[in-house]
C-alpha cells in the first residue's frame, strides 16, 4: 500500500512521494548528501530528528495498518514466515546498501529514492531479485541487472521492509496453478499487459527514455510481484482488480509462451513485421541480387 497520510497532520512535507521523484529530473551532482550534513549538526539536533522520525514512523504505521485493513484483501497466497533474526539481518543489509537513497527510516530521500514505507516485501523482492536495486544512479529507467544479493539475503531484506511498514508480500507456491484456461490467461495478458510489453513479451520503449522491459528473463515470482506492486512506471494491479487466480493465469500464459516452440521455423525475434522486412531485404533481395549478378555474367 502506498502512503495514505495527510501532509498537514505530519507537520512537514515528506521527502518524496511514495511513487518516487519525476524521473526526468536529474539530481544535482553538487548537492551534499543529507547524511553528511547530519554529521555536521550538533548532537541534540540529531536526537530530536531521530525522535521526530520515530513519531512519523508510528503515525505512518498506524495509518498504513488502518488503510491496509480497510482496502486491501488477502493476496490469497501463502505468506512466508520471517523471524526477528531475518529482520535484523535485513536491517544490516539495508544499512549498507539502501540507506543512502531510501533514508534511515525508510522514509525516502528527496531527489534520490522514494519512501519504502508500505511498499511491502513483494516490491523488495521484485526490485532486488531483478538487480534493479541497488541502483547505480538516477536515470529515466532502472534496468534489470545481475542480482547483487543471494536469495537468503533478499528474504531478509523483504522481512525488514515488511516489518517496517507492511504491504503486499511475495507469494509462495506454484504460481502457474490456475483455474483459468491458457486462452483466458492470454486474453487477460493481451488486455492488460501487451500494450506495454508487446504481444510476445518483447518489451517496448515508453516516453522519453523509459522502458517497458522484456519479459524473457522474468521468473514466475518476479512476474507476480511486478503485477502486484507496479514497479516504476508500471501500473499497480492489486488483487481485487486482477485476482490471484487471474494473475497466475497470466503468468502461466507468459511462461508457456516463452517455453513454446515456433511452428513456422525461426521466430526471428517474435517482434513482427520489422524483422520480417529486414529479412526480406537482406536475405531475400540480397541473395537474389547476388544470384542475378552471377547469372548475368558470361562464362
Amino acid at each position: 500500500m502506498t502512503e495514505d497520510f495527510d501532509v498537514d497532520e505530519l507537520g512537514f512535507n515528506p521527502a518524496i512521494s511514495a511513487t518516487g521523484a519525476d524521473p526526468d529530473e536529474a539530481p544535482h551532482p553538487d548537492r551534499a548528501s543529507s547524511s553528511l550534513g547530519a554529521r555536521r549538526r550538533p548532537r541534540r539536533a540529531v536526537w530530536r530528528r531521530r525522535f521526530a522520525g520515530g513519531v512519523v514512523l508510528l503515525i505512518a504505521l498506524i495509518g498504513m495498518g488502518g488503510a491496509y485493513a480497510l482496502f486491501a484483501t488477502s493476496s490469497g497466497a501463502n505468506t512466508s514466515t520471517s523471524t526477528a533474526a531475518d529482520v535484523a539481518a535485513g536491517q544490516k543489509l539495508y544499512e549498507t546498501s539502501c540507506i543512502t537513497c531510501h533514508g534511515n527510516n525508510l522514509q525516502g530521500v528527496n531527489e534520490r529514492g522514494p519512501s519504502l514505507i508500505g511498499v511491502g516485501g513483494a516490491a523488495v523482492y521484485f526490485q532486488v531479485s531483478t538487480g534493479r536495486m541497488p541502483a547505480p544512479g538516477q536515470g529515466a529507467e532502472m534496468v534489470r541487472k545481475e542480482a547483487k544479493f543471494t536469495d537468503e539475503q533478499i528474504s531478509q531484506l523483504e522481512a525488514f521492509v515488511q516489518a517496517n511498514g507492511g504491504g503486499p508480500e511475495t507469494p509462495t507456491g506454484n504460481l502457474r496453478d490456475t483455474s483459468l484456461s491458457l486462452g483466458q490467461g492470454g486474453d487477460l495478458f493481451r488486455l492488460n499487459c501487451a500494450s506495454c510489453h508487446g504481444f510476445s513479451g518483447a518489451g517496448a520503449p515508453l516516453s522519453a527514455g523509459k522502458l517497458a522491459p522484456t519479459l524473457k528473463h522474468a521468473s514466475d515470482s518476479q512476474l507476480y510481484t511486478a503485477m502486484l506492486t507496479g514497479p516504476e512506471n508500471m501500473p499497480v494491479f492489486n488483487d481485487n482488480q486482477l485476482t490471484p487466480d487471474e494473475k497466475r493465469a497470466i503468468i502461466d500464459y507468459i511462461q508457456t509462451l516463452k517455453e513454446s516452440n515456433d511452428p513456422g521455423g525461426s521466430g526471428i525475434g517474435r517482434i513482427g513485421p520489422v524483422s520480417e522486412g529486414l529479412v526480406i531485404w537482406v536475405a531475400g533481395i540480397g541473395a537474389i541480387v547476388l544470384i542475378i549478378m552471377w547469372i548475368g555474367a558470361k562464362s
Binding site: 500494450s195 517496448a204 516516453s207 512506471n233 501500473p235
Partner: peptide, 21 residues
C-alpha cells in the same frame, strides 16, 4: 488505436501506434 500504455509515475498515457502522449 487504444492508447493504453500508462506510465503511472509520470501520469502519461502513451499510444503505441504513433507515439502520441
Amino acid at each position: 488505436c487504444p492508447a493504453s500504455l500508462y506510465e503511472q509515475q509520470t501520469t502519461r498515457l502513451l499510444c503505441p501506434c504513433h507515439q502520441s502522449q
